[in-house]
Design a protein around this nucleic acid. Structure first.
Lengths: 143, 143
DNA sequence: TGTCAATTTTGTAACGAGTACAAAGGTAAT
DNA sequence: ATTACCTTTGTACTCGTTACAAAATTGACA
């Protein structure tokens, strides 16, 4: 999904039972048009110029609401910052251990996401991720 | 592995090219006999009584050294704290989203750990984890 | 349109995991 | 015993995140 209109995003939020305030719509719109697993700071820094009164707390509040409603996934693959992904479909992630960028891996076998049965547990979701070195860091320029 | 002797742990560290100081041996011994994915605080709290001069910084230093040498795995499955696992063999993890406990899942298909080939990337390791509710939280007593 | 209640946003202060750093302590070789 | 090197320790600090209460906004209804 690239460059959704604000009214599209508005409808999208309603679909998750989220009341679409201006701030919430802006955050979700950013997530939908930047599927780069941004951190809270990425989002705040990007929206701040066109929304000068935006508070970082609001970004946190908003993302936590989105999480509760199942509208975004939180990635814990980066131990420093939480990252957010508006793509809640099945896909794996690949983190470069040099620059910490997180890439999508869409063409993994769907079987990877099948949930194992374990006596007594209710298993709800699978998280598949890989660690390695990305092309840019491989060719020398760090970071 | 349960209750390794300190001299066994001493040898074990040498196998990873780690100089076995008293503190390092104690931390690794704890990890080997408590495969419960402890946090830094878990380890510090457990060792502190019998090692009163132990500093929490030493626990951090030690675990970072173990990581560099490949003697432990760091789990980022819990967004609050880093967790450490002395079992570096292939196995998946299962986190209860109510109590945050992390369980091992040993009988997963080995195929899950096969590394995908992606043009330009050097993929080095797979991390497989599942989120759900554990038996204890299911039966009512939270957390 | 004005009023009131409920929700949302905002800024500040606080919390807590993890790190930097330098002093102190321990180890090993000569 | 002296010296050099490595390890441990405690304090101070950084920074991501949350708590909290005041301010702003929204929506309902008269």
């Amino acid at each position: 999904m690239e460059q959704p209109t604000l009214s599209h995003t508005h409808q999208y939020l309603l679909g998750f039972d989220i009341k679409p305030s201006v701030q919430r719509t802006a955050v979700m719109n950013y997530l939908l048009s930047h599927m780069t697993h941004p951190t809270v700071d990425d989002i705040y820094t990007a929206l701040s110029p066109t929304m000068p009164t935006l508070s970082k707390t609001t970004v946190y509040n908003t993302l936590n609401l989105f999480l509760e409603k199942g509208a975004v996934r939180m990635l814990t693959i980066d131990e420093r910052n939480a990252r957010y992904d508006a793509d809640i479909s099945h896909h794996a992630h690949l983190r470069c251990r040099m620059c910490d960028r997180v890439y999508d891996l869409r063409d993994v076998q769907p079987a990877l996401f099948s949930l194992p049965r374990v006596e007594g547990f209710d298993i709800e979701a699978a998280e598949i991720s890989y660690v390695g070195i990305c092309p840019e860091c491989k060719t020398g320029k760090k970071g």
